[in-house]
Design a binder for these strands. Structure first.
Lengths: 232, 232
DNA sequence: CGAACAATTGATCCTCATCAAACCTTGTGG
DNA sequence: CCACAAGGTTTGATGAGGATCAATTGTTCG
C-alpha cells in the first residue's frame, strides 16, 4: 500500500499543513499492519508513536485493573489516534487500541511530531481542535451515563456511530457492523441488556438485526428515543 | 484586588510565558466578581471569554435538557476554565460555571487569546497539556461510572478532590467543604445514597461528617475502598 | 424564634446485572 | 456436502443495588 501526501490532507489535524510538511511526515513514518483482533498499543505502554488509521477499523478502550473495559471510541480511516501520549515526552497511552478488522496505520514518532508542532502553530491548533471535540464528547457521554437510562444510551451510541461512519446500503437504510458486545461496551451496559433492547426495537420495526449487524429502518424514531424528554 | 503579572505564572498554561506576555494578558483582561451561587457563564452561551480563577472556588457542571446535572470538576485558585470555547471562533461553552463561594476571576477575551497562541507555540503547547489531562480524567471517570459501584465512586471522588484542594486542619486530618448534593453530582448518584455511604463510613471511623463538611480520619482506608479489587 | 436549607432515615419499587442454558450463524475440515 | 466447533446471540429466572418518595431531624442565620 502506498500513501500519498495528498491523502494525509484528509486527516483533520493535517488539513492546514503544507505539502512539504506532509511529505516530511510520510518519510519519517512507518506503516504498521495489524490483523483482526490485534493491538496497535496497550494502555500503559510508553507512547512512542501516534497513529493515523489508513485502512480498516479500530477501537479505543480503557480497562480497569479488574479487567472490565469500556469503549471510548471507534476509529475509522484517516482518523488520528494515540495522540494524547504525543504531547509530553514521558507519556504513556491512556487506552488500548485494538483492530476490529485487518487494519493498517501510519505510525509517526511522537518525538518527531512534537518537534514539528513547535514550529508550526497550525498543527498544534488543529490538534487542539480535535482534543476539545473529545473532551466535549466525553463530558456528554459522562453525563448520559450518570443520568440516563439504558435504552436511551444505546440509541445515542448507535446514532453517534452512524454519524461517524454509517453507510447507507442498497435500500437506503443505514447499516452498521457491530457486535452486541461492542454496543454494550459503548453504552455502558451488558450484552444481555443490549440484546433485549434491540429485540424490542426490532419488534417495533425500528431496526433489523443480525449477527454482528444492525440496520436502522427508522432513524428518526431512534433520534426520538435518544432526545425525547422523559415521558414519565 | 490587584493581580500582578507574576501571579499569573501560577497558572499552568502560563508557566512558560514571558513577563511581557503576562503583562499584556493582564492589560487586556478584566476582573469579574461573582457572589456565592452566581454564574460565570452558562452552558450554551457563546464563549467570548476564558477565565482564570483568582479567588474563591467554583464548579463546572453539565446539565441535560431535562435539567439533571453532573459535576465535571471543581475549580480552585489559579486554574483556568472556560478554555474549551476559546479554541474556535464560533464556540459555545459546553458547561456551566457556578461560584461555590464569593469568587473573582480574570476574564480574557477568547479572540485575543487565540491571537496570542498563534505566535507563541508554548502557550498552545501548555494548553494542550492541560487538555490531555482533562481527557484522561474524563475517560477514567467514564470507565468508573460504567464499571464500578457507588461506594467506590464516592471514595474516588473524595480522593480526587483532596488531591486537588484538600487542606489539613489542626488535627492533621483532611477536611473538605462540600454538600451531599455536590458529592452526589460528582459521583453520579443521589444525595440519599451519598448520605448513606458517608453514614456507614462514619460508623466505621473512616470519616467525620457535618453540614457541608467531610473530614477524612483514615485516608488510607478510603484509598483501599477506591482501589481494592472486588473481593466478591 | 422561625424560616430556609442541609442531611438523615425508612419503606418501596424498578431497572439492570447476573447466571445458566439453549439457540443461531459462520467457517472449517473430513 | 455434511458435521462439528467456535463464537455470537437470545431468552428466562432471579436478585441486588440504588433510585425514588415522604417524613423527620438537624443546622445556620436573620
Amino acid at each position: 500500500m502506498t500513501i500519498l501526501p495528498a491523502d494525509l490532507r484528509k486527516v483533520s489535524v493535517f488539513q492546514h499543513a503544507t505539502d512539504d510538511d506532509l511529505k516530511l511526515l510520510l518519510e519519517r513514518s512507518i506503516l504498521r499492519s495489524i490483523e483482526e483482533g490485534g493491538f496497535f498499543f496497550f494502555q500503559g505502554d510508553p507512547a512512542k508513536y501516534l497513529y493515523v488509521l489508513v485502512a480498516g477499523r479500530a477501537k479505543l478502550m480503557q480497562s480497569s485493573t479488574a479487567g472490565q473495559q469500556v469503549n471510548l471510541r471507534t476509529i475509522s480511516e484517516w482518523q488520528m489516534f494515540g495522540a494524547l501520549g504525543a504531547v509530553r515526552a514521558d507519556a504513556i497511552y491512556p487506552a488500548t487500541a485494538q483492530a476490529l478488522e485487518a487494519s493498517t496505520a501510519l505510525a509517526i514518532e511522537s518525538a518527531f511530531w512534537r518537534e514539528m508542532m513547535q514550529t508550526r502553530p497550525h498543527l498544534s491548533f488543529d490538534l487542539m481542535q480535535l482534543m476539545t471535540g473529545y473532551i466535549q464528547e466525553m463530558q456528554e457521554r459522562y453525563r448520559e451515563l450518570a443520568t440516563e437510562k439504558v435504552e436511551r444510551r444505546i440509541a445515542r451510541s448507535i446514532l453517534r456511530l452512524t454519524a461517524q461512519l454509517g453507510l447507507k446500503n442498497a435500500d437506503g437504510n443505514i447499516e452498521l457492523a457491530l457486535t452486541r458486545q461492542d454496543l454494550a461496551e459503548m453504552s455502558g451496559t451488558t450484552i444481555f441488556t443490549a440484546s433485549r433492547v434491540l429485540a424490542e426495537w426490532e419488534r417495533n420495526g425500528l431496526v433489523e438485526t443480525g449477527r454482528e449487524r444492525v440496520v436502522l429502518c427508522k432513524p428518526h424514531s431512534l433520534v426520538q428515543i435518544a432526545e425525547e424528554l422523559d415521558e414519565s
